[in-house]
Design a protein around this nucleic acid. Sequence first.
DNA 1: CGAATCCTTGACGTGTCTCAAGATCCGTGG
DNA 2: CCACGGATCTTGAGACACGTCAAGGATTCG
Lengths: 252, 252
Amino acid sequence: MLTSAVSTQIAVHRAGHAVVAPATRHIARCSTCAMRHLCMPQGMSAEELPKLEALICTARAVRRGEPLYCAGTPFENLYAVRSGSLKTTMAHRDGREQVTGLRLAGESLGLDGIRDDVHACSAVALEDSSVCIVPYAALKRLCRESGAMQERLHRLMGEQIVREASQMMLLGSLSADERVAAFLLDVSERNAQRGYSSAEFNLRMTREDMGSYLGMTLETVSRTLSKFQKRGLIDARGKFIRIVDLEGLRGL
Amino acid sequence: MLTSAVSTQIAVHRAGHAVVAPATRHIARCSTCAMRHLCMPQGMSAEELPKLEALICTARAVRRGEPLYCAGTPFENLYAVRSGSLKTTMAHRDGREQVTGLRLAGESLGLDGIRDDVHACSAVALEDSSVCIVPYAALKRLCRESGAMQERLHRLMGEQIVREASQMMLLGSLSADERVAAFLLDVSERNAQRGYSSAEFNLRMTREDMGSYLGMTLETVSRTLSKFQKRGLIDARGKFIRIVDLEGLRGL
DNA sequence: CGAATCCTTGACGTGTCTCAAGATCCGTGG
DNA sequence: CCACGGATCTTGAGACACGTCAAGGATTCG
């Protein structure tokens, strides 16, 4: 359930209700889907609401390991993660892939295609997931009609710009210990913002994914997590991670 | 002079004319300023043009070493570099600063403030420079009236998102040699796109700035440049750099 | 339940950092 | 225009954090 916490990523109504719609229908209108708030700023007038729901709220299921979209393919939609989680990856000329992002339930996806109508990244589900589809062309039209809507989309892009700049800082100037600690704290905080536990969570990335995202090898990720465990900072059992000493992690 | 090359960063008209307006007036309307094209997509109707020019084209001079804006200060304007160059920097909690971007003449600046109306980065001039001021509130209004304008702004943000993702890749998986080579090629290409020489240019960053941007120490930057010089890949005399063997650099 | 994937840990190699000293560049003021 | 002084750059030697290679164990998922 959502708490009254308001995400900075995607603002959420202050009423508690189910985050995840019943997963029985894979392609479905998600009028009960919390993610429609991606496009529902507080300032929006009542008559605009139906237009919105008509536009954006189609859901799509993505199986673990399957791509939601691929780098190089035409960009048409933005997405909001309804349940599950995905990674975004980019490839070098030589084919090496690197993880460039992690998207948890409630976060948005697909902005990498806006530059030139072709996706710059691929998005792959880390577990069986569900996303809301937001047709970009229609969203753009809506943003010209509604200032609140425009504001929302701009902030979403701004958020990603700042988030990526922070990741550049992490990669450019932190040690392996500091990177792993910063990553765990980031995931923890993003969980908290969406009303989930900040103290424990299932990280569906592999050690290799984490290493790729954090600019280190999977072995170093593993060693670092083991070290944190020995020091009593975390309790990690495979993909399940519990943060024991938050301040200790912050202090790195 | 501009060639007919069209920048992907900021599309430029296909007519050649001076990139840099006469620098005699520091605060001036820059109706002759190429940077007004930031907000002048091809698809724009004739009657919208005056509105645009009324809005955006005020210039501001920034002395070498001076900030154009600082992290933590209110965000009100976007900027387009008219002449000169700037770096953007971000600070860690502990005060360490890292260079997160380099902006050459013709490129845009300030998107880091859109997320929450406060600048996330600082922007500091690398040499005496001049920028066009684009009030964000007015630009937003314009984007609701003009689809072409909206498109332009979105692509600008999309460009930055993709650019930063590429920099994350560089920082996360390239060796020191590869990073320096990629950086030189990037600057070279950006120069070419704006009609300047791709083979030689003045990089006004210090070795320390480059190191900070590329996630390495200034000593390693220096050693790497020396190595490239010995191999006949480049000709570097302090901040002036000439690319001798483009393919050789690409091959790293 | 079984096989493939994923994770952990060890030993060793190396790319990059750190510290240091001298050279060079460049802005400033005379 | 020149001289000065601080900032910047180069280069070397040694240290160390992290990568690489390898092997065995634990998950996980079909």
